[in-house]
Design a protein around this nucleic acid. Structure first.
Lengths: 258, 258
DNA sequence: CGACTTCTTGAGGAGACTCAAGGGTGGTGG
DNA sequence: CCACCACCCTTGAGTCTCCTCAAGAAGTCG
């Protein structure tokens, strides 16, 4: 992977915010730490492990999940390239979530001290991390609403639309058919269902000509029908970011980057 | 309410982090904006409204909820005095959550510009807001696991334990019987159940001598049994906060507060 | 005291789960 | 190159949790 590609991946999440001062993404690249790899099924960081770090995902998909007594697993986030991983555990002494590879994976570890440096020296980058975290929180709220208040077919439809939207943000050339390397068991753990019932639900979507999802490959056949089934209110796109580099203050990044 | 009390409430969330530099909480007090009130059932801020602000809750309980197509509601957070409210909507152009009063409520609005000022001028406070948000995210992950992967009685037990723990952090003199002013319908919307089934579940807890929750008053009778039913893994208490005011840098707050 | 909300309980039904077994698919090693 | 193995997908039958609908009781507020 070329250095250019690597940088593109690293900052995908920031680019999504639109007109970002380039010095912000530059600042973030300087903080990237050592690279790590994992094979499918490998655990990058287990729930309960001490001194949790933060990761940036470069290649592959990763699930973030918590385990309840009895051994059941709930996946709380599907990470795709460009995502930051493990942040919810940052406040604690031990990790509250397990990061597990869905595919072969490449990521880098953000050194623990780097976060302190960001808040001291890169206020604009800190503000972006704050906004990204709020966005993650809103996504989690939507998932909770989906699991708590809608049926199986609605949950699957919502997930398909979410995955497609996120892939599209990352790679604008994503079409209606794309790789979505999750097993039905993993989908079930995301949606609060069982693997068997996910299978039946996917069969129903296939029979109705709405979507096909087999062997890690997802094809959207009828987007309007999917949207009709997905029950979560659409958000206004766009964000308040002006305040980060806004008027009334010296450019926040420039002062410290000098 | 005296000024002293008000300050105590404002900073309860920060005190929970332990040894916090007093200048941090001082800095936060200076940002408090105009006060607002609401009666039970009143909406402080509706989902979809433009230019969402952030609130600090002083008195009473508030639910934060999202609505799915069909009219069903999922409550994603129960706010108690000292909490910051509305932060997930900060990144968006419109609010993604409705803030509704469970009781008579008093709160203050944090001016929009105040957040920008925090990140520019109060890096230690910004870091605390970041940590608090990560903690909220972890709480949401636990709720999702509870709703997605456990039965009704487990969800209710988990909720009771969570409420008790949070009240205890805020008021150490909270006993095993305390005010928990939620209707069964509201509890249902938190846990992804129906009001009818919450009623039956509470009856079961009562019949087994584990807990009583009637008319907004909650009594814990058998904490061990509750813990046995609550299926979410306990977290290590304590947090990494040293890095905020840690060595190797000038005190982050002092430089800008001068 | 009256209207409204909230709580309570019953009966019946639907969606999702459990258990179980067979069939594909891809990877690995001989 | 083929055979085998592990994992994943698929489908059926029966069960159970939780929902829906409904109506009455209890509590609350003006």
């Amino acid at each position: 992977m070329s250095l250019l590609e690597q940088q593109e991946v690293d900052t995908a999440r920031f680019r999504a915010y639109g007109q970002v001062d380039p010095s912000i993404t530059d600042a973030f690249r300087r903080l990237a730490g050592p690279r790590i790899q994992a094979a499918r099924g490998g655990v990058l960081r287990a729930q309960g492990s001490a001194n949790p770090a933060i990761y940036v995902l470069h290649e592959g998909w990763v699930t973030s999940g918590v385990v309840v007594a009895g051994g059941a697993r709930q996946i709380v986030k599907i990470h795709m390239p460009g995502d930051m991983m493990g942040m919810p555990s940052f406040a604690g002494l031990t990790a509250c979530e397990t990061l597990q590879a869905c595919t072969a994976v490449e990521a880098s570890v953000v050194p623990f001290d780097a976060m302190a440096r960001i808040f001291r020296e890169e206020p604009a980058l800190a503000a972006f991390l704050f906004l990204i975290t709020q966005e993650e929180r809103a996504a989690l709220m939507d998932r909770l609403a989906s699991v708590g208040r809608t049926g199986a077919i609605n949950r699957v439809a919502t997930l398909i639309l979410e995955l497609h939207k996120r892939l599209l943000a990352h790679r604008p050339d994503t079409g209606d058919e794309f790789e979505a390397p999750l097993t039905q068991e993993e989908i079930a753990d995301v949606l609060g269902l069982t693997g068997v019932h996910v299978n039946r639900t996917l069969r129903a979507l296939r029979a109705r000509g709405i979507a096909e999802w087999r062997h890690g490959r997802l094809r959207i056949l009828d987007r309007d029908a999917l949207r009709g089934l997905g029950r979560i209110a659409c958000r206004e796109r766009g964000r308040h970011v002006d305040w980060i580099n806004g008027p009334g203050s010296a450019p926040a990044v420039a002062t410290s980057a000098a």
